[in-house]
Nucleic acid binder design. Structure first.
Length: 173
DNA sequence: ACCCCGATCGTA
DNA sequence: ACGATCGGGGTT
């Protein structure tokens, strides 16, 4: 069952935690989410929208469930899903997944998973995952133990434990 | 127009 | 721990 706007419109930290163990369908690829981070509004110094609305961060202010894909370090893309109500800029960064068909293939790292899944800004930024056939999320009633840690690669806001690393067990699949 | 640096990755 | 890499966002 596809995750809809009602799932993503909630508190970002909750959505980040609950995305662990959810299935992500991207074209013919099926992966399970194992690592996420929450970026929450203009009061979060690590959030791209911390300094207000800009052309890049526009989608973060928009509809929950829409993808925010950005380009970084001259060579990587990173993928987020927008959360909370329209007008409040927040999103969950997808940092790690495992391939359901090749569980040994760990796609750990936001740049690596976008490269492997072919997720680029020009095609995927602004895509609505609640209606798009190209990329969407599904519940798969998987219980995932997790730990919360500081977010990776940021210099401000490190005191917030908004990175979630799941211990995903796929042996029942 | 342009400068600077990043929500990274791979290797050491 | 650190260097590669470079597009483009944010500011001038």
């Amino acid at each position: 069952m596809r995750l809809g706007e009602d799932f993503f419109v909630r508190d970002t930290v909750t959505v980040a935690r609950e995305l662990l163990g959810k299935r992500m369908v991207c074209g013919d690829r099926q992966v399970v989410i194992t690592e996420t981070e929450a970026y929450v509004g203009e009061g979060d110094p690590a959030c791209h929208a911390a300094r207000g609305r800009t052309p890049r961060t526009e989608v973060m202010f928009g509809k929950p469930g829409v993808l925010y894909v950005y380009f970084i370090y001259g060579m990587y893309f990173c993928m987020n899903v927008v959360t909370e109500q329209e007008g409040f800029p927040a999103a969950v960064l997808i940092r790690g997944v495992v391939d359901l068909d090749r569980p040994e293939e760990k796609l750990d790292g936001p740049g690596k998973l976008c490269r492997s899944l072919g997720i680029t800004k020009d095609i995927y930024n602004g895509l609505d995952s609640t209606v798009s056939p190209a990329l969407y999320f599904e519940d798969m009633s998987l219980v995932v133990p997790y730990e919360a840690t500081p977010r990776i690669g940021i210099k401000q806001g490190t005191e917030r434990l908004w990175r979630f690393v799941g211990d995903v067990d796929l042996t029942s699949f």
